[in-house]
Design a protein around this nucleic acid. Structure first.
Lengths: 189, 189
DNA sequence: CCAGCTTCCTAAAGCTATTAGGTGAATGCC
DNA sequence: GGCATTCACCTAATAGCTTTAGGAAGCTGG
């Protein structure tokens, strides 16, 4: 019996790659077993359920995305930071559509609270430091930015913009410019 | 043999209700058969596959949502129309989370082109009539509005805002105010 | 070197989707 | 009114995914 050397980490990572190839909801314990050339039941020594596997992939993706955003944000402020944040987000979704979808998995509150999701909201808040905004406006703005970025990325990924000939990159910069202007306006209020 | 009186329409409708109860991706041919007290295979006389059933539910939801938005929009213009549009969208998602998720199903291009999705983008464009905007800005603005609305609704539904005590209704009106201001600014440019 | 834990296996049960082929009830035609 | 056809539903069977139970082989520490 040759051992495959499975670990929860390797499974999670392979699951993330699988997600990018075939889509997050096509990720299946069976397919993963096939890729490791191992019987399905064997995976259950490392992961408790298909659900847990998906949750692990989601947490992994959140972490990875947060790292990228943090790197992109380092040393930037104001509009520069806004654009870096947004681009990091969008680029990740394009490079890793499956992982991006995974990151959107609904987690139960405790899991979510312990996840890198927390870093995401902190970083979004950090961007607003460049715009001098106080509560509750800050929270409103955080929610709006999150909505725009997530909404744009998911619509673009779903092909929702492909029926119009206008370049999506142009729209993206137009939107970022608009948001920057909007936040500057709101800051003075 | 008592006939259940199945039709594609009844199945679609029941599927939509099922989606609202258990979530769109828990909609299953088997469960639907159970609800009609009929054997699973019988459904295949009316729908070709599970995939087709889901597509039908998606088209149904798109249609229903478009009708609601159209009704909300009637006789309104400017910011009033913007708010009506946004609220119709958000209210639908809250009342019918499963159908809303269904409406986000990725359709193949031909199906999408023949769907009520077209009406959705037309109506979004109609809102901008109140803001005097020309191409390509109009397209950018349409994409932005779609992103914000979809993003906000889906994040709110996923519980993404629940960890902060600020009222989501407040954020929603704050965002609508901001968008209105933004569009008015952009119109003059 | 061997006891015990771990890793992987076989076996089996319970779901879901899908197809093939049959039966009885309703419908339409002469 | 009898008969053929169609249609709505059925039984049966295949195939894939998930999950659990229990067994055997490899690795590791004393």
């Amino acid at each position: 019996m040759v051992r495959a050397g499975l670990t929860p980490e390797r499974l999670t990572r392979a699951g993330a790659e699988l997600a990018d190839e075939v889509g997050f909801d096509q990720v299946t314990v069976s397919e993963l077993a096939r890729r490791f050339d191992v019987k399905v039941a064997s995976l259950y020594s490392h992961v408790n359920s298909s659900q847990e596997l998906k949750t692990r992939i989601a947490l992994f993706a959140l972490e990875e995305l947060a790292d990228r955003v943090a790197a992109a944000l380092a040393g930037r402020a104001g509009k520069d930071a806004l654009a870096a944040f947004a681009d990091a987000y969008r680029d990740y979704a394009r490079e890793h559509p499956g992982r991006y979808a995974a990151a959107r998995l609904r987690l139960d509150p405790e899991t979510a609270a312990a996840s890198a999701g927390v870093r995401h909201s902190q970083m979004t808040r950090a961007i607003l430091r460049g715009y001098d905004m106080t509560e509750p406006d800050q929270t409103h703005a955080v929610r709006m930015l999150g909505s725009v970025f997530h909404g744009y990325v998911s619509l673009e990924m779903a092909g929702g913009f492909s029926h119009t000939p206008v370049d999506t990159q142009e729209s993206w910069t137009w939107i970022l410019d608009s948001l920057d202007a909007l936040l500057r306006n709101r800051a003075t209020s």
